Amino acid sequence: MTKSIHVIHTSPGRIRLRLPWLRRDGKEAASLADDLLRVEGINEVQVRPFTGSVLCMHDPEEMGVERLIEEVCRSTGVDTVVRPGEELPDGDALLRSLEKGSGVARAATLFIKGLNVEVLRATEGHVDLGALAALGFAAAGAVDIAVKGKLDSPPWFSLGWWAFRTFATMEELAIRNTSAHVRHNNGDAHPPGKTAH
Results as ranks from 00 to 15, higher is better:
Glu62Trp: 02
Ser31Gln: 15
Glu71Ile: 00
Cys56His: 01
Glu62Cys: 01
Arg67Cys: 02
Pro49His: 15
Gln46Leu: 15
Val65Phe: 00
Leu68Met: 12
Glu40Lys: 14
Val39Lys: 10
Met63Thr: 01
Thr51Leu: 11
Asp34Ala: 11
Leu32Trp: 05
Asp79Tyr: 10
Val39Pro: 03
Leu37Thr: 08
Gly41Gln: 03
Glu71Val: 04
Val78Glu: 14
Leu32Ile: 10
His58Trp: 00
Arg74Val: 10
Val78Gly: 07
Val72Asp: 08
Glu62Ser: 05
Cys73Val: 03
Arg67Tyr: 06
Glu70Met: 05
Arg38Glu: 14
Arg74Thr: 14
Thr51Arg: 07
Val65Met: 05
Arg38Tyr: 03
Gly41Thr: 07
Thr80Asn: 07
Ala29Phe: 13
Pro49Arg: 15
Arg48Asn: 12
Ser53His: 12
Arg74Tyr: 10
Asp79Asn: 13
Met63Leu: 06
Met63Glu: 02
Gly64Tyr: 00
Ala30Lys: 10
Arg48Glu: 14
Leu32Val: 13
Met57Trp: 03
Gly41Cys: 03
Glu44Tyr: 09
Asn43His: 06
Pro49Glu: 14
Asp79Thr: 09
Glu44Ile: 09
Ser53Asp: 15
Val45Leu: 03
Val45Asn: 06
Asn43Cys: 11
Gly52His: 06
Ala33Val: 02
Val72Arg: 04
Ala30Ser: 14
Gly41Ala: 02
Val45Gly: 03
Leu55Lys: 03
Glu61Gln: 10
Ile42Thr: 00
Gly52Phe: 06
Asp35Pro: 01
Glu62Ala: 12
Val65Asp: 04
Ala29Arg: 07
Glu70Asp: 15
Arg67Phe: 01
Ala33Met: 04
Thr51Val: 08
Val81Pro: 11
Val65Leu: 01
Ser31Asp: 14
Ile42Ala: 01
Leu36Ser: 05
Pro49Ile: 10
Cys73Ala: 11
